[in-house]
């Protein structure tokens, strides 16, 4: 990643004046890379159930690996597999995955001024924009540290997530029934963990609850995969309501 090794003007100037800055940077670099590897290992362990669930849900090994290599955004991958396993059409699955992936676009908006990538760099860096790489890049003291955190976390997770997926997908073939291990709740459990940091205030919870109720009520009447899309529609309508109805005193 060429942009990752660029000197950021703020720090190189400081380093020239103050040799202590180099020491601070090397300590920060160690801690950033350590975190990146730690998050990568945790993600790998989470990739194993993804691989197993995908194969149990009817995908073959190549399709499962294509998701981890090319889609590379865990929530969307679990969503697509979940819709397919529930008997939904692949396109309902794709639509759900893409809508869930919309949050990566929001991360990108905030990452763009830190990464300052152009041309080919933008197309390669974009692939690494996920929950974890963005979270690790935000809140660093310097752009240089943010860039290092973004690329080291993104690459560490890319390698280890795919490794975990491969192990899970191959292992699932050996496993007669994933329900015995309770793997069918791994995805909803993971969604709860993804959800928690995103919701602040009561209004979003109320809207999300209403959306979920609509989705569950629709299950018997519409093709699988569509209930979740209805929930998204409820959210869009709610978001377009006048602001004072939504924000209230919660924020």
């Amino acid at each position: 990643m060429s942009s990752g090794s660029e000197q950021s003007p703020d720090l190189s100037a400081a380093g020239a004046l103050d040799p202590g800055a180099d020491r601070i940077w090397s300590a920060e670099r160690r801690s950033v890379i350590g975190d990146a590897i730690g998050v990568g290992v945790a993600t790998a362990a989470y990739g194993v159930p993804f691989g197993a669930i995908a194969v149990a849900g009817g995908l073959n090994l190549w399709q499962t690996m294509a998701l981890s290599l090319l889609m590379f955004t865990g929530g969307s991958q679990f969503a697509l597999v979940g819709v397919l396993a529930g008997g939904g059409s692949p396109f309902a699955g794709a639509a759900t995955a893409v809508m869930l992936g919309a949050r990566n676009m929001l991360y990108g908006l905030r990452l763009a001024p830190m990464l300052r990538v152009r041309g080919l760099g933008r197309w390669t860096s974009a692939h690494l924009v996920i929950d974890e790489s963005a979270a690790m890049a935000f809140g660093r003291r310097t752009e240089r540290a943010s860039r290092l955190a973004f690329y080291s976390t993104g690459l560490s997770i890319f390698v280890l997530w795919n490794l975990g997926t491969l192990v899970g997908a191959v292992g699932a073939d050996a496993l007669s029934d994933p329900k015995v291990l309770g793997l069918d709740v791994a995805a909803p459990a993971a969604f709860i963990a993804l959800l928690a940091p995103q919701v602040r205030g009561r209004a979003p919870w109320a809207i999300a609850g209403l959306a979920a109720l609509v989705a569950v009520a629709a299950i018997p009447f519409v093709p699988a995969g569509v209930p979740v899309l209805l929930a998204a529609a409820v959210a869009v309508v709610a978001a377009l309501l006048p602001a004072h109805l939504l924000d209230g005193r919660d924020r």
Partner: peptide, 13 residues
């Protein structure tokens, strides 16, 4: 809102 609604709906479904 959309990601939150999608996640809650996926959990429920």
């Amino acid at each position: 809102l959309v990601p939150v609604a999608l996640l809650v709906a996926l959990i429920a479904v």
